[in-house]
Design a protein around this nucleic acid. Structure first.
Lengths: 244, 244
DNA sequence: CGTTTGCTTGAACGTAGTCAAGGTGTGTGG
DNA sequence: CCACACACCTTGACTACGTTCAAGCAAACG
């Protein structure tokens, strides 16, 4: 423990009071470690745990009838997981560790207490969900209406943007933790075509690659191809109850 | 006014107290009417209104760089709209009336009051968001990993299921309010291919069509093709604060 | 050292897109 | 009341993007 990933995450958007920070800290229970590839939650499983990512990357995926797979979300430090089990009896997706990861279990009852004791925190959590929803919408557009080049490009830009929020850097270079198979599952393409597509991205001077280090070389040209929009996330706190 | 679509919607999942129902009723302000095709909210617009659908169907869509369009959500009576503006300065999607519709404006400040005065209602609204999120995930899988036949089939099954929640009927017949162009925008296909695909659905005896009346003829065979899963939505209220 | 996992490339195929033309139904104005 | 316009649906021929199947290769791992 020692520090709440969730508080750090929320702190990116708003100023938290000491009391709020303490409450978020006390939310967290045991910390668990997972190795890359470990199944944290099984699709259709009953596990109704709430988890916060403390370290590492995860993804959530759904399997199709015919054995294929779609990765629907990527998760990073600070993300709150398992909230879907508040509305569903069975886990709608599987959660899998993309890198070695540490998660922190959150007590469901204590989440309830947050809603009574810290209405502003509840409002902030509600607002946080909106980002998740809009991210899903953006991915839907990407997969539904752009070319393979655009889809893979968009995924790279999203990941790069997210990495930049954690440690802001100028060089637009990062380590891609996904295999080409996983990129395919995230973009709705086959691994083979992801390979060809990334080669084209390199040939066109849009990105550079060495191993799994990726550099965005030409954002100005890549962004329109990928239909990439930088969404300015700015929490509107004006309507929220006062902080406690 | 007279009755809150939102309360009716929530009432499908949980028992609301009289006080909660009254609070939801007082949330609603003016009612507005829109004609089919009317733009309720413009993409990238600043309008930060919260709305509840009282009557009719809406859809939310995003435009791509090259002028194409992706419909990301369909909305029906009881749905709460505009919550994304709590986190974003610009509207991420456009909201358009699919049929003639009536919406009810919700005061942002009063939503804030709900979080302080009715923590359980806040928890319920939070839970409601989860359904929205999971719906988006399901659509992502549909578009990313299934054939045209499956995508169109899934859309029809979702719509039929939603219509059934309002007025439960056995015959699995309904009026489809979407043009083939709009079905294409929702499924990531072209209008032309939607046409061919629907013909195949008919030829294979999966559905029947006359005008825009659709009948699901063979759910057992269509469901696996469409990768369709009936998700049992059951709100877990055990963790929530007591109702007021 | 052998096996596995992931990357790469080629060739053939197939699903969905594009372009084009004609048809149907509805609403509007002459 | 009819003619026209418009929106939507339908079908055909051709194209192209992404898939499938297959094989070879490199790096990591037990």
């Amino acid at each position: 423990m020692g520090e709440s990933g969730l508080a750090k995450h929320l702190g990116r958007y708003v100023e938290l009071t000491v009391s709020e920070q303490r409450t978020l800290l006390h939310l967290g229970g045991a910390t668990r470690s997972y190795r890359r590839g470990a199944v944290i939650r099984r699709e259709h499983g009953q596990s109704s745990e709430l988890l916060v990512v403390q370290r590492g990357w995860l993804f959530c995926s759904l399997a199709t009838e015919d054995g294929r797979r779609q990765i629907v979300r990527l998760h990073y430090c600070g993300d709150l997981l398992g909230t879907d089990m508040l509305a569903f009896a069975e886990a709608p997706d599987a959660t899998i560790a993309l890198t070695d990861a540490e998660l922190c279990v959150i007590d469901r009852e204590r989440l309830g207490a947050v809603f009574t004791d810290h209405p502003r925190l509840a409002a902030l959590l509600f607002t946080l969900q909106q980002i998740d929803r809009v991210t899903l919408m953006d991915r839907l557009v990407s997969i539904g209406r752009t070319s393979a080049l655009g889809r893979v490009g968009a995924l790279l830009l999203w990941i790069e943007a997210r990495i930049r929020t954690v440690g802001p850097r100028v060089d637009r270079e990062f380590t891609l933790p996904l295999t080409q198979e996983e990129i395919g599952d995230a973009t709705g393409l086959t691994a083979v075509h992801v390979n060809r597509t990334m080669r084209v991205l390199v040939e066109q001077g849009l990105i550079a690659r060495s191993g799994n280090r990726i550099t965005i070389l030409n954002l100005e040209r890549l962004a329109p191809i990928a239909n990439y929009i930088e969404r300015g996330e700015r929490f509107d706190t004006s309507w929220m109850p006062p902080a406690r």
